[in-house]
Design a protein around this nucleic acid. Sequence first.
DNA 1: GGTTTTACTGAATCGCTGTTCAGTTAGCTT
DNA 2: AAGCTAACTGAACAGCGATTCAGTAAAACC
Lengths: 213, 213
Amino acid sequence: MSRKSASVRREEILAATVEEIESTGLRTLRVADVAARLGLSPSLVIYHFVTKEALVAAAFAHAGENDLYRARRLAATRKPAAQRLRDVVQWYMPTGSTRSWKIWIDGWSAGLFDDGVKSTFSILDREWKTILSELIVAGLEVQEFRFSHAREVTEASANGPTGTTVSEMADDCATRILAYLDGLAVQLIFNPESVSPETLSSWVDAFVARELE
Amino acid sequence: MSRKSASVRREEILAATVEEIESTGLRTLRVADVAARLGLSPSLVIYHFVTKEALVAAAFAHAGENDLYRARRLAATRKPAAQRLRDVVQWYMPTGSTRSWKIWIDGWSAGLFDDGVKSTFSILDREWKTILSELIVAGLEVQEFRFSHAREVTEASANGPTGTTVSEMADDCATRILAYLDGLAVQLIFNPESVSPETLSSWVDAFVARELE
DNA sequence: GGTTTTACTGAATCGCTGTTCAGTTAGCTT
DNA sequence: AAGCTAACTGAACAGCGATTCAGTAAAACC
């Protein structure tokens, strides 16, 4: 039987874990199933990750970083900022299969009462916000975006008109966009008949346009 | 030891289950803990609900119906439609404690791979949409709301301009509002430092205003 | 007051699954 | 080629927790 270096095996196991979570969910995740998926013994999984809890936490971080990696590449193109923003948003969206989204909903649930997972999600979320926020700022600088609306919203809030920098406003804007995307993903899973992927996509476009017109 | 009628006991057990889920989450929910919360034997819980899975499903439906009941009352006031819409939206929002929201995130996760729970959530979601949708239609009739924006969005979508009734448009509008609320709730839980309840509230107001200006 | 129904319990069961551990062997080093 | 390190396995363990079941006693009913 072929042996592999620890780092390679760990990667394989993480990938298998992610697949397993996506296909059957966290509730019924068994270490044995992850191992079986690779034709390995359950002991090996524990050998590499010490505990199931740690395995799960690592798997979420792994999946999250993968998505982020792709997003960062999309954000680093030479296209105009507006287009790059669109690309990144499209990538975040549950366009094709809702399958890949299920893992995040499962992850939220796990994060509710597990501080390790929770902080992983906080971090991933902030990374996404940073990507979007920077794209927004970039677009503002080249005047692809206005910001009329966001400014108005921010000034109406309790913060008061002073002390809100452009980047803070962009952060908030990113937060709103991501929130909308998350919420729509949930809708897509629980009421797929009421929202088709296409309408969903157009709604998101409209939302972004309203934020940055 | 005091005995109670089956229906009363069931209610008690459901309430206790909801509390238990809210405080420690679904992952670690044990029948024994629910029973202990009421000073009863675990066997009794099973006696009434046959299986843990059924108990959990019933608990979600129970909690959901409770929230809906309150929402319907808020929607049936004599206030102007705009105000009632506000009230219902505020009630849906995670204003005070995020605690009550955790159960829904847990519920989504459970619904991902449990068709019983999933359909419960579909139903609850449709109920919420109906409430909002009817309020929107009511507001339109009295011309408290315009609908300029929503019309424009709908016509831009793949459906084509024909065949979209007012009530369909209101439904879609409700879907978008609920999605935004769901997404913001998730944000509030995983990045409470980046969004205060107040700003969140103002964002929602702005969103609704944009939809119905 | 007796009988039946039905809420309720305690203890035992039983399956499941994460984890341990003693041992095996592939593959690198020298 | 010998030896060491580290990946890997199989079988056993262990604990948890849902479910069962035989039995108890409140109510409800007559």
